[in-house]
Nucleic acid binder design. Structure first.
Lengths: 180, 180
DNA sequence: ATTCGTTCTTATCTTTTGTTAATCGCATTA
DNA sequence: TAATGCGATTAACAAAAGATAAGAACGAAT
């Protein structure tokens, strides 16, 4: 029956395909949808005072993308979510989703699991990486933790996620290779 | 009536005072309590492979401290929460708290506000600091964002939170002073 | 007041990073 | 095939950070 519930949730969602380079959510938009990435790669970035794009996060398959500024605070998005590959998603309006969850208390736990726990864990691990590790170790850990990203996204995006420059990342990679 | 509800929640909680240097939560413990810091300062740290203590976070007044590993996953705490000053807290068992929230739907929103939104915001801002800012700017921002902490906690804890060494923090401070 | 221990600062040296610019590699296109 | 453009690499230099050790400042305890 869990399965049944899941099916009817799927019925309420749409299955969409975005071409490479399209936007799921634009900066300034109030986009209240959740996007579950079935296939593809999504880049989340913002623009700093100098006008440079800062890549904040990269999302591969099986992750949920949403704008927490909008969903939590009903504020316009600070980030832009852009596909780096042709990307297929299941998408559903957050209110529709939440109404559905409330009607099916059995899903409450699964909801918490997906939307909060996973996120918390990842976010805390990431901060721990910054607190504990030097850039080189951070890169190694990132490769381990997200093998499905490193060879699909441009290096400068990875560098940004790690909080370093592309030049530095290039040197780190060289160092790692020469150590072997 | 919001106020009434709040009062009865307070009734279910205990008001405790911890001396400086005591533990709210120990590493390995399954401590299911929430602690609202009324007065004082709490340091959250873990121990790395070398056996060194790494300060992960510092909590001043009006923040809620809890062990999310336990509350979310029922796992033993990875962190230790230790008072850096004589600290007064309101504390309540998470299950008691949650049961109360469920009985008072008017508190659902306030609950989300306190336990999730605030946390998310802080955590994202922190990651942004690491991604975007150099250590010196990160320190300046930390002083701005948490003026109630910087002059109360030992510098080496601050350094750890910022992901740098105490020596480096000392140099950063000197640099900032000499710029003025 | 003196001693002790802890923390912060300073010094020295090595390693790493940021910055800027030039070069290389590769794919797309004219 | 040649030209173009974009991203990664390399080079060169300055600035900053890590590591280690020594010294200064400070408070607590005797």
């Amino acid at each position: 029956m869990r399965f049944q519930i899941f099916i009817s949730l799927l019925r309420k969602s749409k299955f969409l395909t975005f071409e490479k380079g399209s936007n799921l959510i634009k900066i300034g938009a109030r986009e209240p949808h959740l996007f579950f990435i079935r296939k593809g790669l999504v880049r989340c970035f913002f623009v700093d005072e100098k006008g440079d794009e800062i890549t904040f996060q990269l999302f591969p398959e099986n992750r949920i993308v949403s704008n927490f500024h909008t969903i939590m605070f009903n504020k316009p998005s600070k980030f832009e979510y852009q596909t780096l590959e042709r990307t297929k998603v299941y998408t559903i309006d957050f209110k529709t989703y939440q109404a559905f969850i409330l009607k099916n208390p059995k899903l409450l736990e699964a909801n918490r699991e997906f939307l909060f726990k996973r996120n918390f864990e990842k976010v805390y691990n990431r901060i721990e990486s910054f607190v504990l590790l030097a850039p080189e170790e951070r890169y190694i850990k990132y490769c381990k933790d997200y093998p499905g990203i490193v060879n699909r996204a441009p290096d400068r995006y990875i560098a940004s996620v790690l909080g370093i420059t592309p030049v530095s990342l290039s040197r780190i990679r060289k160092r790692i290779v020469s150590k072997k």
